[in-house]
Design a protein around this nucleic acid. Structure first.
Lengths: 184, 184
DNA sequence: GTCTATACATGGATAGAC
DNA sequence: GTCTATCCATGTATAGAC
């Protein structure tokens, strides 16, 4: 019974992989079906139309984003550090679904995808603005997070302009800033 | 004679508009031709294949990026401010071509588009790293710029998480940081 | 230099067998 | 629940008239 939805989940996994590895346009029903190990007809039994595939991914992101927010809330002190580190794409389920969603959003075909991303961004903003006293610093933190996702969406992992290893200094700098402004 | 290439330029302009307004997938030869006010056949006289359109846009971005770098170099002092302000998408020719290129890059169909963006990013990095003493601050500045483009690529102008008007404080904060680190 | 007509391939989706 | 076969629409590209 716990596996009742596993076929659908497996198709969604395949959808994500194809979108990320080969782009939205390559994610045809045929390609996703092959990746999932089923036929086109088999896929269409679970998802009656392509837009249903996208909606399935939106639901998935909504759930993962809620968990992500809870995770951040659990670290009220080091929230800046945790947020920025969690913005580095390392292949977590959230990362994967999120990056796939940015691809779908940029295709211009699925307004729900854009709305979904706006919702995630808004959740982050509310949390960061509350945790960080200074509004300018909060905006800066959010922009850095967005910048990290942007890089992950455009460049291969091994060619990132800012490798994860070099991020400690950036985080330290922002925390310096936050301190000096709160203390000021 | 100065207008010898204007037909091609007009088609490229149309290509950019369709890619930005309706997405890469909507930018079919037919749609671009209509937007440019010519027939499909007429378009294909100038650009023999779709990849030629992309290559035309890559050339255009290369030229605009060189001008952008010169513009930044002309402000050795306020380079951080100028870079971040120039990363706000307000519809300049560079903005337009750059955002269109990010769409093409994410489609996964045109490796030249990704390479082109990597080149632009690299140009910025070299300049900022040299102008800003602290490497961590330099990376931070670049990430903020990327974050601004990311937002412009995903959200409509009137729904940006960080409106241009609220950017002054962010810039001031970064300049604070740069000063305190250089002085330290 | 720009057009129409057309060939060809591919993608989304339906129908119906198993 | 999954498959094959098929229909229809659309996109790229070519050929050739004007």
């Amino acid at each position: 019974m716990a596996q009742k939805t596993s076929a659908k989940e497996a198709v969604l996994d395949a959808f994500e992989r194809v979108v990320i590895d080969r782009g939205e346009r390559a994610a045809t029903l045929e390609a996703v079906a092959v990746e999932a190990g089923v036929s086109k007809g088999g896929l269409l039994y679970h998802f009656g139309a392509k837009k249903d595939l996208v909606e399935g991914l939106v639901s998935r992101l909504t759930g993962l984003a809620a968990a992500d927010l809870e995770n951040l809330t659990a670290a009220p002190d080091g929230i800046v550090s945790r947020f920025i580190r969690s913005s580095v794409v390392i292949g977590t389920p959230f990362d994967t679904t999120y990056i796939a969603m940015t691809r779908l959003a940029q295709s211009g075909l699925y307004p729900e995808a854009n709305a979904s991303l706006a919702g995630v961004e808004q959740g982050w903003r509310a949390l960061i603005e509350e945790a960080v006293g200074d509004p300018a610093v909060a905006r800066l933190v959010l922009l850095v997070g967005d910048g990290l996702y942007y890089n992950a969406a455009l460049f291969p992992f091994d060619k990132l302009p800012t490798p994860a290893a070099e991020l400690d200094d950036v985080i330290a700098a922002i925390e310096d800033l936050a301190r000096s402004r709160t203390a000021g």
